[in-house]
Simulated assay, not measured.
Amino acid sequence: MPSPIVVMGVSGSGKSTVGAALAQRLRVPFADADDFHPPANIEKMKAGHPLDDEDRKPWLATLGDWLGERCGDGGVMSCSALKRRYRDQLRAHCPGIQFLHLSGTPEIIGARQASRPGHFMPASLLASQFDTLEPLEEDEAGVVIDVGQSIDAIVDTYISLTGGEHR
């Protein structure tokens, strides 16, 4: 049975673009976790303040509900999922969740962030994102793919590494 996929990484890594392309390729629903943030979280980030665990707790519960509804049917969500405990909270709703970690250098991702003016996540918070990031551990289902390639290449690589098992 297909498991939901979470496309994770720091802000500006391409989670939403890759997630939408992957969902389209797999013919499953797509959701952008940014669309689930309550207004207070967005205002905090716009003001240049990183979210803390208390800010994220109800947001992650809502994301987990969406993923849990797709356990067995598949779906793709873009979500930073920077810490292991955040990923564990998502997995509590659907243990089979797979992760696609989009990885890149601060220079590459910073350049990408600079090309999207008006986004609620200011570039000034990028360093805090990298400081917070806990890479996937060996016991977590997922793959790491470098963002320094085309969207199609990232999707192709993910499908080839996972055997397309999420269809």
Rank of each mutant, 00 (worst) to 15 (best):
L22T: 05
A92E: 14
G74R: 03
D146A: 13
E165F: 02
L22M: 08
R70F: 02
Q113L: 15
V10A: 13
E43A: 15
E137G: 15
A40L: 11
T17L: 13
P50I: 09
G96F: 03
D55F: 08
P106M: 09
H101K: 02
G14E: 08
L125D: 04
R91M: 11
V18H: 03
I42G: 03
C71G: 14
R87H: 11
H37E: 06
E43I: 02
D73P: 00
W66T: 06
K83M: 12
C79M: 09
E54P: 00
R91A: 12
L161H: 12
I159K: 07
P95Q: 12
H37L: 07
H37A: 06
R25K: 15
A20S: 14
L60I: 12
G14Y: 08
L63G: 14
E54Q: 14
R84C: 06
M45H: 07
D146H: 09
D146C: 04
G12L: 09
M45G: 06
A141H: 10
P58G: 11
P95M: 02
E165G: 15
S11Y: 03
F120L: 05
P122H: 07
S11N: 14
M1L: 14
T105A: 10
A47H: 07
E54M: 06
F30Q: 00
G48Y: 09
Q113Y: 00
R85P: 00
V155G: 03
